[in-house]
Design a protein around this nucleic acid. Structure first.
Lengths: 141, 141
DNA sequence: ATGGGGGTTCCCATGATGGGAAGGTCAAGG
DNA sequence: CCTTGACCTTCCCATCATGGGAACCCCCAT
């Protein structure tokens, strides 16, 4: 039996987060020593590592809860797990796409900017809503 | 002169956010009518649109503040603006990379999961820290 | 018994946004 | 003139996941 600090080190989840997960019901309340210290055994540490890995894969806490429930349910269908994972892949794809659009727009602007000591700057012109003078207009035709 | 609702519609920034930007000092305090309503002219709306576009490009509020300062400074060097934009591109790249790694890991797991009615699931096995039996182990040799 | 390194709870902050309550204001129409 | 509905004001709370820190208690080794 380990205390919360040891469990944190063993699982890679900070003590702060362990308490938070418990408070929000993601994980069941840990046992307590007579003086109120939380205690963790190997099984609890495994749960924490599970949570850690799922979070590392970008699952929001709520989905981690769903995954934990499936993990505990020996009657589960692997299809349910797969669905969750595919949903997460889609969520990631959406965010990746959004960020790549931002990046592309920025690269376009950066490309048009001289980046020297002069004040003229198509980046600011664009942000300010100006038409960017003569530099590849948005309505290309 | 428009009130905050009209300015919100004209700029694409919600009234709530306009007040927040003012409160945090990102934009200067708006003028007020005798009865306390905030008033906005075309110039103020342009500032709001500037903020909106910069946020759409993923700049955090702090950097938006920097951009606004450069925008207002007619002595600026475009190199300074470009540096900010390039920094933002890097920030985006980092986050994109992280998410693509998550996505790749998930795809790997999803690929290995039958996704049927049976409970056996390499996804859960992996999250639980098991070695995934005989299915392309992590230490491939 | 004392000191240092834990543990415990509770509150606050982040970043950017939305929701909502309580109360004042404005404009249009009866 | 008064009502009504849409709008404004401020203030508080919630999100999501995480960290910081205060105040206090506990355990072990010296």
């Amino acid at each position: 039996m380990m205390n919360i600090g040891e469990a944190a080190r063993a699982s890679g989840v900070s003590a702060k987060m362990i308490r938070y997960y418990e408070e929000t019901g993601l994980i069941p309340p840990a046992g307590r020593t007579g003086s109120g210290y939380r205690t963790y055994g190997p099984k609890e540490v495994q749960v924490l590592r599970f949570v850690r890995r799922a979070r590392d894969l970008g699952f929001p806490m709520e989905k981690v809860g769903d995954l934990l429930a499936l993990w505990r349910d020996r009657e589960r269908a692997s299809a349910d797990v797969k669905r969750l994972a595919e949903g997460q892949i889609e969520a990631l794809e959406t965010r990746i796409r959004e960020m790549m659009e931002m990046k592309a727009a920025l690269e376009h602007l950066v490309h048009a900017c001289a980046g020297d000591a002069r004040p003229d700057c198509p980046i600011l012109d664009d942000l300010g809503g100006r038409v960017a003078a003569n530099h590849c207009s948005t309505t290309k035709n």
